[in-house]
Each structure stands twice: as structure tokens, then as C-alpha cells.
Computed example of a mutant assay.
Amino acid sequence: MSSITLNPSEPSSFKCFVRMSTTKNAPTTVTSPPPSFARKTVLITGASSGIGLSFARLLATLQVSHLILAVRSMQRGSEVAAELKKTFHNTKVDVYPLDMSSYDSVQDLVRRCDRLPQLDIVILNAGLANIDYKTSPSTGHEEVFQVNYLSTALLSILLLPVLRRKCKDNRNSPGRLTIVGSALGLDAKFPNRNAVPLLPSFSKPSTWTGLSSSSEQYGVTKLLLFVLVLRLAEMVRPEEVIVNLVEPGFTGSTGLGRGASGVLKSVVAIVHKLVARSPEQAAWTYVDAIAMRGAETHGSFVCNWEIYP
């Protein structure tokens, strides 16, 4: 069953967090036997660091044929590509530029993908969490809202028909569009939900009063991804493209908390060391969502290797 068909529950990011801290490693059904990505073309956004980088390395070990790294820093992306090519000679690796704060960059990436002979799997991993208020220079929107929701939504909508056309074996293996979400969306208060117009209300500096406000902004962008995935799933049949949302778990070394300082930085470091998944462990949640799951996850939130209501 998909998330939309399950009975209502009392969702809580804390419950998810407790589960994550006790289930860091993938179940044996995911890791043994491992899936193969031979003859598959996979696009990963935010692939030069954190979970995205670990996932790229993991795909290479799983025999992916063509790996496309969509990154903000072409220099860093090229370094990762060189590392992968040196070790995995049978994997073709390309690096495409992607600035998630720019609509032009998002559309340019889609045009590049549309020229590919094949595209089977897309995982939208790029994300952002800021402690302080910042705006995207090219759009004027608050940066976290721009990257985590607006640009992710645009990229998803534009890539969906590309996946439908370019997946070479969708009769037996549908295309896959997996967006990286977060259980923090389950606790978002969404105080501006009745604002008219709605979109500008996410970018008001007056709503930022510290850590609690930045946490709420991050959470509500992830909440909006739940809605996005449900609507995208209505736009395409699972026989063509399976669309789902995956929670990688509380993970260290991702760069999301890089804006923290002082005592907060020390607390984050301690919590990461005690209970966080490694990027390698988190990368297996992506494998589960795109390779070990089928049409039952269409329009669903996959958390801790199960469909979450």
C-alpha cells in the first residue's frame, strides 16, 4: 500500500528519529543480494559531498553503467568523477552543473537530460539548511525555500516526462524519480499556511528569529515535498515512472549543519557521533527506495525501510 492509502497515524519526527538511531544499517533484504544497476543511467543532484557522494560511490560498486553527477561546484564534481573513473573502469561518469538557487540552471540541466539517449533513475538529493536568513540573488526567495522546495519542484515536474520517454526498459523496470525528504516535515507547524499570496510569505525576514525559525523553515519545505510527491504521483502511472520520497535518516557529515557555531556546533557534533548514520549507511536508504521497492511506493514516503503513513 502507498502512504495515501494507509490509515492515518500520529506522525512524529521524534518517533522516526528513535527508529533511525536503532536501525542504522539496511536490513539483509536490501543488502543481500545487492541489486545491480548495469545498463542503467542514473542522475544524482548534490553528488559531490555527503550522502550524494556516498550514493554515487555505492552505485559504482553496484555496476551502474552511466552516472551523472549534477553539482554546484564543477571543480569538486570533476574531482569526484576522476576518483570514480580511476576505480570503476566500466562506469561512464559525467558531471553537469546545477545551481539549485537558479531557475536557469535547473532548466539547463533538464535540457541536457533531454538530449541523453537514456535516463532511468533520478534522485534529487541536493538540499540546504541555514541558521541565518539568506535570499537567493537570482529569485529573491529565501534560500532554503528556494533550494529545498521551489527548485526541487520545478526540476521534478520538468524531469518527469523526460524519464517517461528516456527510460529504456520501463515495460519491465519503470523509470524512477526519488526525492530526498525528511521526517522533520511531519512536525512542521506551517504558520503561514493561510497567507495570500502564499509563496512570498516564505521569504519574509521578519519570520526569522533564531534557530527555532530556521528549523521550522527547513521542516515546512520538507512538508511541502510530501504534497509534491502525492501530486506528481497523480501525473504519471507507476508502470511508467515510480515517484517516491525517501528519508535517509539523521546522518553525519552531510554539511547541512555547517552554519552552526559555538555551543550549538559542539552539541550537533556530539549527537552525530552518538546516534547518526554514516553517509554510507544513509546511501543504502536510496538504494532501497529506487531498486528494492516497486509500485507500492508510488506517491509514498519511505522511512526506515518501510512505507510511512
Score class of each variant (00 low, 15 high):
Gln281Cys: 00
Val268Phe: 13
Ser266Gln: 05
Ser253Cys: 02
Lys273Pro: 00
Leu264Thr: 09
Arg258Gln: 10
Ala276Lys: 14
Ser261Cys: 08
Thr254Ala: 09
Ala260Met: 08
Ala260Asp: 13
Gly255Ala: 03
Leu264Tyr: 05
Gly257Leu: 05
Gln281Pro: 00
Ser278Ala: 04
Ser266Tyr: 06
Lys273Ala: 06
Val268Pro: 03
Val267Glu: 08
His272Arg: 04
Ser266Ala: 12
Ile270Tyr: 13
Ala269Glu: 07
Pro279Cys: 04
Val271Met: 14
Lys265Thr: 00
Ser266His: 04
Ser261Gly: 04
Val271Asn: 07
Ser278Asp: 03
Arg258Asn: 06
Glu280Tyr: 09
Val268Ser: 03
Ala260His: 11
Ala269Asp: 05
Ala269Trp: 15
Ser261Thr: 08
Gly257Val: 00
Val271Trp: 14
Ser253Gln: 09
Val263Gly: 04
Val267Cys: 07
Pro279Glu: 03
Arg258Ala: 05
Ser261Ile: 02
Pro279Ile: 01
Pro279Arg: 00
Val267Leu: 08
Ala269Asn: 07
Val268Leu: 15
Ser261Phe: 10
Arg258Tyr: 01
Leu256Lys: 01
Gly255Arg: 06
Val263Arg: 10
Ser261Met: 06
Gly257Glu: 12
Lys265Gln: 14
Gly252Lys: 10
Ala260Trp: 14
His272Ala: 11
Arg277Leu: 13
Gly259Met: 05
Arg277Glu: 01
Ala260Asn: 14
Ser253Asn: 08
Ser253Thr: 05
Gly259Phe: 11
Ala276Gly: 08
Pro279Tyr: 09
Gly262His: 12
